[in-house]
């Protein structure tokens, strides 16, 4: 039993320190921005911080500045880790296209398994890119709202509308992200990776076979 389970329990490094800091820094800042944003937005009866607008607004703006600085600081401190992340996220191949087409088909109806995936599957790549673009959108529209008194009202109004629409568009992405990482048994082992940087080798082989094969080719060791 121990001989069989031993290789499965071996760990491989999936994320570098820069990636971990970027993920958790983003997660914390986004949570603060979402909560304070709701505090600036929700109506009476649903809003426990209605009477603390100045404080809530200050926290929201400080967190937004943090969100702007985070990728710059992380890229400066861990350039190889961030470059590796972007390299792996932005490249899509035929397997990614197949994965995206077939992942929406319920598992029992799939005639073949999903194409093997690299360190990030195609869904994770898409999610990262959409979140990055939305973040730019939040920052641009937030700056327009912040400087609203110096702009035509139609522009600050458009920025306000898009800020809200972006938030609404992000909610299902975040909900899906949380379900996959915390609740779904088949994907939950990934949570260990984003906490410690390492995932179990058997999970990596099952979900990211192309990546583990590449590592094996290069002779990279698992822990």
């Amino acid at each position: 039993m121990s001989a069989l389970s031993a290789p499965a329990r071996r760990l491989v490094r999936r994320f570098g320190t820069g990636e971990l800091v970027l993920h958790w820094g983003y997660a914390v800042l986004f949570a603060v921005l979402l909560l304070t944003g709701l505090g600036l937005y929700l109506p009476p009866g649903q809003n426990p911080v209605l009477a603390r607008r100045e404080l809530v607004r200050e926290i929201h703006l400080d967190a937004a500045i943090g969100l702007l600085l985070l990728p710059v600081l992380v890229a400066g401190a861990w350039p190889r880790s961030v470059a590796g992340f972007w390299h792996d996220v932005e490249r899509f191949d035929a397997d990614d296209a197949g994965w995206l087409r077939r992942v929406v088909v319920p598992r029992r109806l799939r005639r073949r398994p999903l194409p093997s995936q690299d360190r990030f599957n195609a869904g994770q790549k898409l999610n990262s890119i959409v979140v990055a673009a939305a973040t730019v959108g939040f920052i641009v529209t937030g700056c327009l709202m912040w400087q609203g008194e110096h702009l035509p009202t139609s522009l600050s109004e458009a920025a306000d509308s898009w800020h809200i629409w972006l938030m609404l568009a992000m909610l299902p992405l975040i909900a899906g992200h949380l379900v996959l990482s915390l609740l779904l048994p088949s994907t939950r082992p990934a949570m260990r990776g984003i906490i410690t940087g390492r995932v179990r080798l058997d999970f990596a082989r099952r979900r990211h076979a192309k990546w583990t094969a590449r590592m094996a080719e290069r002779g990279e060791p698992a822990d």
């Binding site: 932005e90 490249r91 899509f92 191949d93 673009a133």
Partner: peptide, 15 residues
């Protein structure tokens, strides 16, 4: 879909 093509960059800029 040539392997390794930086589709993501185009998607990001397109968005």
């Amino acid at each position: 879909w040539v392997p390794g093509k930086p589709i993501g960059r185009r998607l990001f800029l397109g968005l």
